[in-house]
Design a protein around this nucleic acid. Structure first.
Lengths: 236, 236
DNA sequence: TGCCTTCGTATTGTCAACAATATGCAATGT
DNA sequence: ACATTGCATATTGTTGACAATACGAAGGCA
């Protein structure tokens, strides 16, 4: 764990974040978030204030502030006088998150369909082609980042920052759900078919079709994850 | 401003909140949120740590923690070494929030259409009737809480807590937008027509129709607010 | 007059100490 | 053997103090 530097302005990797946010709590927050999402702590694990503070080289104050922000983002659970724990995402929670994500992503597609440029369509088509290649090769390490880039391009392409923030908030909570196990390979083919349907609707500037395609894609993803989870563990 | 009691367990109004959350920061947070949403501070106004801490009868620590949570919820803006300010919601922001709200509310309607009970339909019909009475009487004080109850019933009726939280988060940010001025009366008639369309689709268990009705209702509300804002102030 | 520098004050950022609560272990009693 | 009580320890909750930064007024200079 990288010890946060004692205020020396430029310090390697995230100098930009530092310049923008400066305050230690922001730094500590993103650091703890990284730790949580990396899956280093299992779901429900306790986050000790002093331990974390020592690891990051700060006092407990900023750590406690970071906890509050992470709690508001739904990444940790706080029990008074007991402590802070990595949020447990049950199957039931995951379903709820996926349904909201379906609505948000569908909305993104719908909004994008009304304003998408030819360049953006081309960009998505390039990603589509690359994903198909990776899919045929069963190359999950190539496929995964492309898949993320595809969804990110659509969500940020709307130009709606609130939508993007909401979407990424849901994504991070889902990361928490599948933090353990779940290679969730497979489903390349169907996933690519769904991607093509989305781009087709976007290219046709068809808001309704785009929403439906986006919604259906996330719902299909939900089904795939839940099926995969069914096989690996018997979580509540 | 009610001074927060010094730990005496039961203290009038929000004893339940206290029992559940206990920690001062939670209390302070909801208190500051109330202050912000009440519109007592104008948009962009500075929130002084020590002043607030003294008003609430606590030290700066819990106040700072509350700030972090409120920042994560998008209610305040934090500038390093400068302080915390009531979040400014521009017209552009409001449009973005409304678009997301349309998607979320539409999604709520869609999900609810798949699981709504006859009792729930009746409940909504009762609210519908009451709103029509209030609308015909131009009784905004009666109409407003009914309107909120109608939307809340739909959103919570889905049983999806994540969706509800997301929705209410957007609502509170919108409250920030129209905190000043904006009586936004009028539009009763059209609003009621839209409400009827929503309930009709729900009663018909028609997910697509319900989504569209919900989406259209929020979009219409957006148009009404923006038009009203056009007349009152020239915000950015 | 208008602009810049300088200094005092107010405010934020961080920390370490103190108080309150919970946890785990040992001793006691049934 | 098992449950219960009491104590020692660890952890959280809160506070006040100190350091660093920003703000604003007064004064000097062109």
């Amino acid at each position: 764990m990288d010890r946060i530097a004692k205020r020396q302005p430029m310090e390697g990797s995230e100098a930009l974040d530092l310049l923008k946010s400066s305050s230690l709590s922001q730094l500590v927050q993103s650091e703890i978030q990284k730790i949580i999402l990396s899956g280093r702590y299992s779901a429900g694990a306790k986050l000790n204030e002093k331990t974390l503070a020592d690891q990051l080289g700060v006092s407990r104050g900023p750590v406690r502030e970071a906890f509050q922000a992470l709690h508001a983002r739904g990444l940790v659970e706080m029990i008074p006088n007991r402590g802070v724990f990595v949020q447990r995402i049950t199957r039931h929670d995951a379903v709820a998150i996926y349904d909201v994500r379906a609505g948000i992503f569908g909305t993104a597609c719908r909004l994008l369909a009304e304003r998408i440029t030819a360049d953006m369509v081309n960009e998505l088509n390039v990603l589509l082609a690359q994903m198909e290649v990776a899919g045929q090769r069963r190359d999950i390490d190539a496929y995964f980042p492309l898949n993320i880039e595809f969804h990110t391009a659509i969500v940020t392409g709307t130009g709606n920052q609130v939508l993007a923030d909401t979407y990424f908030g849901l994504i991070s909570r889902l990361q928490l759900f599948r933090a353990r196990g779940l290679v969730h390979g497979g489903g390349f083919e169907s996933s690519n078919i769904e991607h093509r349907a989305i781009v087709a609707a976007l290219d046709a500037r068809d808001p309704h079709g785009a929403f439906e395609a986006g919604w259906a894609h996330v719902q299909a993803g939900k089904a795939r994850i839940l099926a995969s989870d069914e096989n690996t563990a018997g979580s509540t």
